[in-house]
Design a protein around this nucleic acid. Sequence first.
DNA 1: CACAATGACCAAT
DNA 2: ATTGGTCATTGTG
Length: 169
Amino acid sequence: MAEHEIEFTIPFPKWHRPGRMLWQAGFTNRGLRWLRVSVAVKARKDSKLADSRERVLIDAVKARMNGDNVDLDWDSFDLEGRPDFHVRVWKAMRQIPFGKVKTYGEVAELAGSPMAFRACGQACGNNPILLFIPCHRVVAANGIGGFGCGLEWKRLLLGVEGNFLGSKA
DNA sequence: CACAATGACCAAT
DNA sequence: ATTGGTCATTGTG
């Protein structure tokens, strides 16, 4: 299937660290297929936009990084071919309110499989759409838990929502 | 198909 | 800090 990729950079919040983050996204004809971030290492030009879905995404990301509770429609995601259980877990995560957290166990229960807290962690790690499938709001029963691309990102994403769980001081 | 191995876990030693 | 218990997914034969 044809996949169209875009990328753009925006500055880190000043309280977090200097520099910019690089956001990259992939679209299919069905919708947003994946979204991820990394630290922008060298200067880049933002992609030229081919269609309006891309502008909507970029605006939403910027708003979120600015602390606003903006969301995208579930139906605008392309989750085709993903394991059923993963999709259930991802959907369950979206029930966690902006700025709040739930444990892996609680999310597993929301997903209809209360004892699958560990499998739930795997589903989190496989989340293809960072930020809008809010895996950063899922924490361990005893602490902040893990994060695929590094705990700093989890702290940042929670931080922009006003939740500073796990940050020191 | 039948396994074994792998995890961003959990609760109780 | 260690351990035994959980479960869905993925890889291997």
